[in-house]
Design a protein around this nucleic acid. Structure first.
Lengths: 225, 225
DNA sequence: GCAAAAGTGTTCTTCGTACACCCATGG
DNA sequence: CCATGGGTGTACGAAGAACACTTTTGC
């Protein structure tokens, strides 16, 4: 049996201290007028990860510098798309706060929406995208515990305070700044001190860091909620 | 673009203190004579999880009592199957030690193979099944840390010592029996004391337990390797 | 009695949490 | 001066690691 295969993207970022997802407004049926996750068909001869990267670049209008992209899960319920059998390989992307999609670009129809708002009661999202978004958010929350992926939400150079506010936005609660500082600076391979300083956050100037090369955190940060 | 979609299964169990995977010997090209993961095409109107459950039942010849089944990852490199574009949704199953596949049954061609042997150097497996198996084993190892899924390898009633030997087989190293005992019996919702006892393991009779209803372990067991 | 496995107690150390306190800037 | 955020020190308690020790069976 032959089916169509698409990739759908859960692209997360932090804007104004809130976890946000990139959504597009559907212009044609089915689900016309509803929000949907960006995505598209896998092309001939194209690997899944490659298709996801292509869609990500098209929708955000950026190169993939510093953006984390991974496969999330595949959704293939028989009637998830009323037009026919479509299996979608969902991917999760974590991106720094990108400039808003510009009018006139490919991504003009895309908008950042607060995750809380997108998942609020009521069928706001097309297809099974509410489930996909919820799975993506849960994956992101849990990956921040045992990987250094919080840095994927930050610009190339960032302060410990900025990184902490990322974790606070994703997990939805306050973290003790003193203990967080000790934890991340003491975790080998997590952060690299650039030697630079900034006072853009106010108060005493803070050290600037780049992400380190570790993939896993030992011991993990704890959500503690 | 239309493609074929299959489900492939990484079915793990413990036999003779070793982590084993169920493999089938391919009788037709491509990769004729090589080992492969069991699997098959997703049928019309069939959900992915349902297809995986059907294949699992067919290959093991058992109902799904106590067997854990979850989606693993999707593999869709353009040339992973020389016959054409095939995307496979791999699933991971953890099963208690099942009776050996009987001659004459659907699963007569299937055999339990040690994971170490299946992943040893040299191209023993068909397609990209070596990668899929490696991903499945890694998923299983890591899930045993923070979920009570070690019990999925055990019969309905089991002793703490039997459960410990499961962890030792999966992680490949010894665990202190005294600390392990305290850890699992003290973890709320992990184990339920049936009141029964057995001396099938020799030595002092051990309490028999059933799995509890928790899905997550707080705090996790640690691999510590 | 001896071997083997179950189960308990104790000690040491590591690590998370809470919070007092000092530092360096802007206004 | 004060407010704001950066960064360090310390004390308490929970949990992991190591291991001595007792219990209950089979042989």
């Amino acid at each position: 049996m032959k089916v169509s295969v698409t990739v759908d993207l859960v692209i997360l970022t932090i804007r104004d201290q809130e976890l946000c997802v990139l959504l597009v407004r559907r212009g044609i049926p089915p689900y016309k007028g509803r929000w949907a996750l960006p995505g598209g068909f896998v092309e001939d001869g194209e690997d899944l990860d490659r298709a996801a990267a292509r869609e990500l670049a098209e929708e955000t209008g950026t190169r993939l510098r510093g953006v984390h992209l991974e496969q999330l899960r595949t959704y293939g319920a028989p009637r998830r798309d009323p037009r026919g059998r479509v299996v979608t390989v969902a991917h999760l992307a974590l991106a720094p706060d990108l400039p808003s999609p510009k009018a006139g670009s490919d991504a003009a129809h895309a908008e950042w929406v607060s995750v809380d708002e997108a998942l609020a009661a009521g069928p706001k999202l097309a297809f099974d995208h509410e489930q996909i978004l919820a799975d993506g958010v849960e994956r992101a929350r849990s990956k921040l515990e045992y990987t250094p992926l919080g840095t994927a939400f930050c610009p190339p150079e960032f302060t410990v305070g900025e990184l902490r506010r990322v974790y606070e936005a994703v997990w939805g609660h306050r973290i003790d700044p003193r203990n967080f500082h000790r934890k991340v600076t003491g975790s080998p391979g997590f952060l690299v001190d650039t030697g630079g300083r900034t006072n853009r956050d106010g108060g005493r100037p803070a050290r600037l860091f780049r992400r380190g090369d570790t993939e896993l955190l030992h011991p993990p940060l704890l959500r503690g909620d």
